[in-house]
Structure formats: structure tokens, C-alpha cells
């Protein structure tokens, strides 16, 4: 059970190993806070959908499993959207149209298809929870790098004061190109560490 949880954090990390959910990963990580909010919202959806799918896995005929998974996922995403709008309006407006788009995050559908529809509930929870946290972790790292270099702040706190003589933010880092550059470098670093551990470099 622990093994299923741990694998999502590093070995089978959804972003760096499986390269799933690239759209939100690239789009919302302009700041660390946005990355964290998107990661936690996705974690909630993937775990909730995982529980439901795992519990009903024997009832769902395999011919209609994809539409059933999609309806379940879309329901939880809509719930997240409404709760954010009601209780965290600022976060909701920062994430904007990306919250409804969690529905098409292939990480979520991928976990149902590959794991929760074939495993009992306790394994389903640890797998999806690990994947969700692994996803959140990378989104925070990505958002932190882009926010620090692109705006000189971290979680909204000024780290490098800007000014005529001070830090010059590199605007490209908060633009889409910065997302690709940062993600590429992080993925390269991830592979390097894995190779080092194996002793191949």
C-alpha cells in the first residue's frame, strides 16, 4: 500500500515520468500559489474519482467505462469549481478557465483506466493520492522557479526587490515559453538524478 503511494511522488511521477497533464502544468504555473492551488484541486478530483471508480469497478461494463469515468470526473471538477467560487473567489479568478479544464487532464482519466478500475479501494486511494501529491509538488517547483525569476517574488512575498538598481525580472519566465524552458530543465535534472542513483553517469 505504501509502495503505491510512494511511486507517484518520484519513480512514476505523473509530470516528469509519465508526462501527463501537461496543459495545466504549463499554463497555470506562473506563480507558486497558482501551481499549488491547481495541484491540490487536481489531487482532490483524482482521489475522489478514484474512490468512486474503485468502489463501482465491478458494476461498470468495460464497453462504457470511459464515458462513466468522464461523467464521474466532470462531476467532481464542477464541484471544485463551485466551491472555489463560493469560498476562495480570489483563487478562483486567478485560475480562471483552467479549473473546468481539469476534466480533460489525462492524468486523472489515466489513473482510473490504469489503476483504480482494477484495484480495491485502499490501493486506489494510496495510488491516486500519491499521484496527486507528486503532481502538486512539481507544479509548486515549476511555479516557484518561474515566479522567482519572472517577478522576483515567492508565494507573493518579495524575495528580490525590483527597482532601478535592483533585480530585473525576466518576463519570459512568466510567459508560455518560460514554462517550456523550466519544465524541460526540471525533467532533465530528474533524469540526471535517476541516472546518478543508478550509477550510470
Amino acid at each position: 500500500m505504501l509502495k503505491e503511494f510512494i511511486k507517484g511522488l518520484w519513480k512514476d511521477n505523473p509530470v516528469l515520468r509519465q508526462l501527463l497533464g501537461m496543459c495545466p502544468t504549463l499554463a497555470v504555473t506562473t506563480t507558486a500559489l497558482n501551481g499549488m492551488a491547481m495541484g491540490l484541486a487536481t489531487t482532490f478530483v483524482v482521489v475522489s474519482a478514484g474512490i468512486v471508480v474503485s468502489l463501482s469497478r465491478k458494476l461498470i461494463p468495460k464497453q462504457v467505462r470511459i464515458p462513466v469515468f468522464t461523467v464521474i470526473i466532470a462531476t467532481f471538477v464542477t464541484v471544485v469549481d463551485m466551491v472555489l467560487k463560493a469560498y476562495f473567489p480570489q483563487l478562483s479568478s486567478a485560475l480562471g478557465p483552467y479549473v473546468p479544464l481539469i476534466v480533460v487532464n489525462c492524468l486523472i482519466l489515466g489513473r482510473q483506466e490504469a489503476f483504480t478500475s482494477k484495484n480495491p479501494i485502499h490501493l486506489a486511494i494510496s495510488d491516486t493520492f500519491g499521484m496527486g501529491l507528486g503532481f502538486t509538488f512539481i507544479l509548486i517547483v515549476l511555479g516557484s522557479v518561474r515566479e522567482l525569476i519572472g517577478a522576483g517574488t515567492w508565494f507573493g512575498t518579495v524575495i528580490f526587490p525590483t527597482g532601478p538598481a535592483g533585480f530585473k525580472p525576466l518576463v519570459i519566465m512568466v510567459l508560455p515559453a518560460g514554462a517550456f524552458i523550466t519544465l524541460g530543465l526540471i525533467a532533465a535534472l530528474y533524469n540526471l538524478i535517476n541516472l546518478k542513483v543508478k550509477g550510470e553517469v
Binding site: 458494476l59 462504457v64 464515458p67 462513466v68 461523467v71 464521474i72 466532470a74 462531476t75 464542477t78 464541484v79
Partner: peptide, 16 residues
């Protein structure tokens, strides 16, 4: 199954 899942999720969404 499809009908049932849709009805349950519609009810849940209506509540939220």
C-alpha cells in the same frame, strides 16, 4: 449504468 451514473451525478451537482 450510464443512466444511473448520470442521474446520481446530476443530483449531487444540484445539491452543491
Amino acid at each position: 449504468v450510464l443512466g444511473g451514473v448520470s442521474v446520481i451525478s446530476a443530483g449531487f451537482l444540484g445539491y452543491v
